[in-house]
Each structure stands twice: as structure tokens, then as C-alpha cells.
Amino acid sequence: MKKELKIAATIFVVVFIIDQVVKYGFANLGWDVDGPYMSLKLAYNYGVAFSMFSFLEHYLKYIQLVIVLIATIYLFMNKTVFKEYYLPIALLFAGGLSNILDRFTYGGVVDYFYWHYGFEFAIFNFADVMIDLGVVIIIYKQIKQSREEKKKNGI
């Protein structure tokens, strides 16, 4: 368990710092770049994915902090879950807490990746990608585990 915690903490710190440094550059140093397929353009998201719940703009950071606190308590009480999923948990917590920090620092989440070739896609950031990667890893592990159980039970 100690090894997993060290790895998770390292991943958390690295992802969190990279995300915050990049966001600082876009928010304060004007790192915007226009491209033919994708642009790097500063935008603030006052809601969650695709700006949903933006009407909760001022309360969202507190709601999200409560969710992170509940998840932390759950993991503390279920150490086997953490041991099994420490990598995606580190990615989820780093991305989630970095986005929450944006809400306190900038008033909204700093987004900057803007895909606009062929179709326009939502603007997102590195933390969002890490959150998505964490979810994909969890889903992959769940599918793999389900298949192994079916094979073991002869189904």
C-alpha cells in the first residue's frame, strides 16, 4: 500500500503542477495560438463539462470540494479500492482539484484546447484529459476483471 501511495502522490503532484503552470501561461502570459485544425485559446468555463450547471457558478467549487472530500473518505475506508485503482484515482484527483483551484483563483476553469477542423468541439484543458484518462483506465480494468470472472466461472 505504501508503494501505491507514493506512486499516486507523485503522479498527482506532476499532473497538478503541469496543469497549473500551463493554465497560468494562458491566463496571464497570453499563450494563445491559432491553428488550422486546433487552436490554443483562453476560455473560462463557469460550469462543468460543456458548461453544464454554469448557473451554479459561485457554488460549484464548494459542491465539488464536498464531492472530493466524500471520495477521499470512501477511499480511506476502502483501502483495497485505492490499491486496485491508485493510478486512475491519482489522475482524477489531480485533474479535479486543479480545476477546482481554477475556480478559486480565476473564477472559472481555465480551458485552452479548441478543436475546430470539420466540426467545433468544446474547449478543454490538460486536467480534463487526465480526468478522462482516469475514467478510461477504470472502465478498462472493470471490463477486464468482468471477462476474467466470466472465464473463471465458465460463462
Rank of each mutant, 00 (worst) to 15 (best):
A94Y: 02
V109T: 13
Y106H: 08
H116F: 07
G95E: 14
V110N: 10
H116N: 08
L101P: 04
Y106E: 02
P88H: 03
L101R: 12
W115L: 14
Y114L: 10
W115V: 07
G95K: 13
H116C: 09
A94P: 00
L91A: 07
N78D: 07
K83N: 15
T80I: 09
L87P: 00
G107Y: 02
Y114M: 11
Y112S: 03
E84M: 11
Y86T: 04
R103T: 12
S98Q: 04
L87K: 13
Y114T: 04
V110K: 08
T105R: 11
W115C: 06
G118V: 01
L101A: 15
F119A: 14
Y117M: 14
D111F: 06
I100L: 10
F104Q: 10
R103S: 12
S98E: 02
G107L: 00
G118S: 07
D102T: 05
Y117R: 08
G95L: 11
A90S: 15
Y85K: 13
F104E: 06
F113Q: 04
N99F: 00
K79H: 07
D102A: 07
T80G: 10
V81D: 15
Y85F: 15
Y86E: 01
W115H: 06
G96F: 01
G96S: 10
S98W: 05
L91S: 07
G95Y: 09
F93G: 04
Y114G: 01
M77P: 00
Y106I: 08
K79Y: 01
F113I: 13
